[in-house]
């Protein structure tokens, strides 16, 4: 009986918001998935910062956002902020990366006063 009520009330009113999908872009999703896979693949090699900042920037660009200055600022500052938060405040260890990339991570950690 309960399902009846739910179903009927929903059927009566088809409006589920402006959810009409104009076009689907399967290639874009595949691109997003490939990009994410690449990111996971490389994060231990490059370290958190060197992998994440380009990943976020590329994701935003892939999503069709074309204000490059904003994109660069958002991806750089956001990545640094998250790195600072996790490593300095909640002590979660993030991938440092292999040499020589680890040097970049260590440099950033020194600059931000982590450890």
């Amino acid at each position: 009986m309960l399902e009846d009520i739910v179903e009927e009330s929903v059927k009566e009113r088809g409006d589920a918001g402006p959810g009409v999908i104009a076009e689907r872009r399967p290639l874009l999703v595949l691109g997003g998935m490939a990009l994410t896979a690449a990111y996971v693949w490389i994060i231990q090699e490059l370290g958190f910062f060197l992998a994440t900042a380009p990943y976020v920037a590329a994701f935003i660009a892939l999503g069709g956002y074309r204000r490059w200055g904003v994109n660069a600022a958002v991806s750089l500052i956001g990545t640094l902020a998250i790195m600072f938060f996790f490593m300095k405040l909640v002590y979660v260890s993030l991938p440092l990366g292999q040499e020589p990339f680890a040097q970049v991570t260590f440099f950033l950690m020194r600059v931000m006063g982590i450890r």
Binding site: T36, Y39, V40, I43, T52, Y55, V56, F59, I60, G63, G64, Y65, V74, S75, G78, T79, I82, F86, V92, S93, L94, P95
Partner: peptide, 20 residues
Amino acid sequence: FPEVIVSAYVVMCCILGAFA
């Protein structure tokens, strides 16, 4: 706020959470 920027960070936080 552009949704794509929020989404990029959502993905990053997902991965970070899994790793942590």
